[in-house]
Amino acid sequence: MALLHSLLMALVVVSCGPVPSLGCDLPQSHALVSRQTFLLLGQMGRISPFSCLNDRTDFRLPREMEDGSQVQKAQTLSVLHETLQQIFNLLHTQGSSAAWNTTLLDQLRSDLHRQLEDLETCLLQETGEAESLLTLEDPALAIRRYFQGIHLYLQEKKHSDCAWEVVKIELKKCVLFVNQLARKFQK
């Protein structure tokens, strides 16, 4: 288990390098916040993921999240923003404070808020408000449906600690996606 954890942490450090500008100057701190977000998620749980194996589910990542090639370059910032916004919203739902360390949860919420502000600034610079909504409609809808499935899962499991542990692992996948997508379009 320790070896697996070490390998996963090494992957995070490699994949969370500097976030590209995508035509906009995101602060260098954006990459550090992304790495910190992943690390905080790893520290959040109060129970062992192994005790929750029966609660696992396949949330079925949208193709836009599994394969960044489905996302057009012009949509990248919007997809990144939508994904982070949905994670942020999820962390403000019922039961998140009870399931996780509240100090770490508050720090995670703050870090995500900072990332969202950076991306919103870039979105406005790149496209303008009206156009950004139109360019992302299909990918944003897929991402919203994906997170709606996570919300429904939590409701079905009555926001149990194990349900939140399963969701935490899924959120770590999302953070990795955000970093991979940002890196993909650095050119």
Score class of each variant (00 low, 15 high):
148 Q>A: 11
42 G>S: 12
94 Q>Y: 06
47 I>T: 02
125 Q>Y: 15
171 L>T: 06
157 K>L: 01
103 T>I: 09
134 L>A: 11
64 E>W: 10
121 T>W: 12
56 R>F: 11
133 L>N: 12
150 I>Y: 05
128 G>R: 09
104 L>P: 02
138 D>M: 00
12 V>I: 10
111 D>G: 07
177 F>V: 01
142 A>P: 10
93 T>V: 08
132 S>A: 08
51 S>I: 04
130 A>H: 13
182 A>W: 13
131 E>S: 09
69 S>K: 12
1 M>W: 02
114 R>W: 14
112 L>V: 06
57 T>R: 12
53 L>C: 03
50 F>M: 00
113 H>I: 05
85 Q>Y: 14
135 T>S: 10
13 V>Q: 08
184 K>P: 06
13 V>W: 09
53 L>A: 07
99 A>F: 06
34 S>T: 12
41 L>A: 06
135 T>V: 10
163 A>S: 03
56 R>N: 06
148 Q>I: 04
1 M>P: 01
42 G>F: 14
93 T>F: 05
24 C>N: 02
26 L>E: 15
36 Q>L: 10
28 Q>R: 11
101 N>D: 14
88 F>I: 00
123 L>F: 07
171 L>C: 08
101 N>F: 15
66 E>N: 04
113 H>T: 10
167 V>S: 03
59 F>N: 00
126 E>I: 01
50 F>H: 03
138 D>A: 03
41 L>F: 14
36 Q>A: 08
78 S>N: 06
125 Q>T: 02
70 Q>C: 09
45 G>A: 09
68 G>A: 14
175 V>G: 05
156 E>M: 06
27 P>T: 03
53 L>P: 02
125 Q>P: 01
63 R>P: 10
24 C>Y: 15
43 Q>T: 07
150 I>V: 10
144 R>M: 06
